[in-house]
Design a protein around this nucleic acid. Structure first.
Lengths: 146, 146
DNA sequence: TAATATTCATTGCATTTGCAACGATGTCAA
DNA sequence: TTGACATCGTTGCAAATGCAATGAATATTA
């Protein structure tokens, strides 16, 4: 009857990372939902559209690490809320253009400064470790996605 | 029609953290499932039991940040797989003791060294940033959980 | 050109998840 | 002691998720 070796889950990086990420996302999600009525996947798509408007579902899938079915459904909800429109790409009619409506732009104009402020506060609190954190995250992705 | 300010989702910390954590967890989950037939919630409970055997569902909920319904269902699956037993606490019959079976101990004896090795590799690859990363994660939790 | 293969977005389906409600047990104060 | 309240684990239910299959459009190749 082998005895399991000592193990400290709290210092296990994947676990720790997951807990912190989850907490942070959930807390933000509460704000998005309460003030703007959108979910995390919806917020991520909007944020990506702020950066590059007119992209396809496929672009979203590749650029922001979101399953295409998830992206498709979130996009449909954004359309239903009047924040985004879907139009067919003229050159390749398999592709879609997701475009911010004026209402979507207004929402982003209110939301993005808050996101920036949140991030600024966070960086300030982390001090010198903030850059190391970003570097570490990049490296983990490189290692883990061979 | 307000124009949304420029925004780079890729450098938004909650997003970045979430992507990295998800990748890492999913990759590990594939291994757990393929080699040991367990899911991430199940693995976390086992890991916690390696550390402190005989705990209740409530302990798990508090110590490893898992919804109690999730913990309850994962524990039931572990019982069904013969890795864990549930016994009633004699002093307080609302409480449960989750205890590793010999089979569960054997599985952990095989799994834990791999987890340690994985973590060691990761730390090595991160070099000096590893400690800063851990510190940063602790600090984010403190800030974000007021 | 015609036939085959690939790509894109959506949808059906099974699983997982979170929340609220529940029964059983325990605590506390009148 | 008894009655109101709290806690523990489970479960019902609706929503979210991931995967595979589908249909439409395009690319490729014989």
């Amino acid at each position: 009857m082998p005895k399991p070796p000592a193990f400290d889950l709290d210092s296990f990086l994947p676990y720790r990372l997951s807990v912190v990420a989850q907490r942070l996302s959930d807390n933000l999600a509460r704000h998005y939902r309460a003030e703007f009525g959108i979910s995390t996947p919806e917020w991520r798509i909007l944020a990506h559209l702020a950066q590059s408007d007119g992209v396809s579902v496929r672009d979203i899938e590749q650029r922001i690490d979101m399953e295409k079915s998830k992206a498709s459904r979130a996009a449909s909800k954004l359309v239903a809320k009047g924040l985004v429109t879907k139009t067919a790409n003229a050159d390749d009619r398999r592709l879609l253009h997701l475009t911010l409506t004026p209402k979507g732009q207004t929402l982003l104009a209110a939301l993005l400064p808050r996101a920036e402020a949140f991030q600024a506060d966070l960086r300030k609190a982390l001090g010198a470790d903030a850059d190391a954190l970003m570097r570490a995250l990049d490296n983990i992705l490189k290692i883990d996605t061979p």
